[in-house]
Every structure is written in C-alpha cells, then in structure tokens.
Amino acid sequence: MAGTRSYDAILAAQSRSALRGAGLVGLIVLVCVAALAATGFFDAKRFLESGPAISTLASEMVPPDFTRWRTWLRPLLDTLAMSIAGTALAVIFSLPLALLAAPNTSPHPGVYWMVRTLLAFLRSVPEIILGVLFVAAVGFGALPGVLALALHSIGMVGKFYAEAIEHVDPKPLEAARAAGATPIQVIVHAVLPQVLPQLTDVTIYRWEYHFRASAVLGIVGAGGIGFELIAALRLLNYDQVSAILLSILACVVMVDSVGAYLRKSLK
C-alpha cells in the first residue's frame, strides 16, 4: 500500500502543516508589533521627556517613611481578611455553578449555556467597578470589598472549575454508574475526587490574587491598606507611598509562600 508516492504525499502534507504553523506565528508577531505601535510605545521622544519627572518622583519616594507603620497594621490585616473571605464566598458559589457549566455534569444543554453566560458576565465586570457599586450600596469598609472580590471571582473560578471538571477521566464515572450510583453520587464520588487537586490549585492561586486585588480595592473606599495608599498619594507623601508599597510586597511574598506550602501539603 504505502509506496514511494504515498510517502511523498505524507511528507508534503507534513511540510504544509509546518508552513501553516510558521505563518500563524508570523501573524501573531505582526499583531503584537501593531498593538505596541498603536499605543505609542515606539514614540522615543515621550520617553526622553519623561526622564526628569520620573527621577523627581523616585527621589521623593526614597527613603521610604515607615514612621506611621502602626496605623497600617490594622488595614493590612483587614486586607488579608478580605482576601480570605472573598475566596471562601467565591468557592461556595463557584462549585455548584461549575457543575452546571461543565458539559459532562450539566443536567441540560440549556442550563449549560445559561450558566456559562452568567459566569462570562460576572468576570467581564472589573472588580473595581463592582467595588464602587458595593460601596454605594453597603457603605465604606471591608464588606463591599469582599462582595466585589467574590462576585468577580465566581466568574473566573467557576470557569476554571468547570474546565477541570470537563476534562475528568470518564471511565470511573462509568464504573460508578454501572454500580447503580445516582447522578449526584457519581459527581461526589467519581468526579470531585479526580479534580480536587486542580480545584485546590485554582483556589489558592485565586486567594493570592485576592490579596493583591483587595489592596487596589481600598482605593475606591472598600477598606484595607488600599485606603491608606490612596490617602498618602493624595497628600503627595511619596515616601509613605513607597513604604506602604513595600509593606504590601512583604505581605504578598508571605501570602504566596503560605499558598505554596498549602499547595504542597494538599496534593
């Protein structure tokens, strides 16, 4: 069957597919360059003129002024609490939604599309906008921040959960079904045990992200260290700004290492 002619055909097809791959990479590079140009990145003059302004700002930020550190402790703890509470809420709502949004566990294609759309909508509203809305609704403080983080994250975490659930090995599911398990028993005992490590991973990553995001949310009045940050910026106390940024950095490093530890021990 496979004579020289068919060898040639196979190799020619291989070359064609390699060429298509190269063409696609070229196109992506082109689009990236166009995007940089459109946003003014290749305007050298602007960069040259910005030199003095940047150096003035930098000199005002150094040395960082840590004299008010006591007043930042509570807001930093608030930020930490916001990140944990936001993650907990996001997980509680994401899991059931993800089960409805994964084609292999969703009860009906209609439900699948509805929940997918809902999740897409939730993650398309930036948390800073949600923060502004919730501050208007429930007042200043950590609560609007937590609600904003959770609501936005449900869209993201729900999608990641759904994708993990979608790619489970169907064989153990069939085994459970063959043993007479109900659909919910199949989900709890054959689907979830398979995806638990991925769900944990997504959740921990999201918690790390929530800490950084809740620092930003303070800027719109949603509690935490961000509130102090925006106050220092408004008063042009750049040495305090740099001190707060360094404190946030220290906490991010801490949160990330706790996350790494949890990831390792929950495998």
């Binding site: 153990p172 085994a175 459970a176 043993a179 007479g180 398990a181 109900t182 919910i184 028993q185 709890v188 005992h189 054959a190």
Partner: peptide, 12 residues
C-alpha cells in the same frame, strides 16, 4: 464506590 448504591444520595 461499589457500596454507594446501597445508600441514599444524602447518606453518601
């Protein structure tokens, strides 16, 4: 997993 069907969904 073989014992699941012997119990109610809630119990499992």
């Amino acid at each position: 997993t073989g014992r699941l069907a012997a119990h109610s969904t809630l119990r499992t």
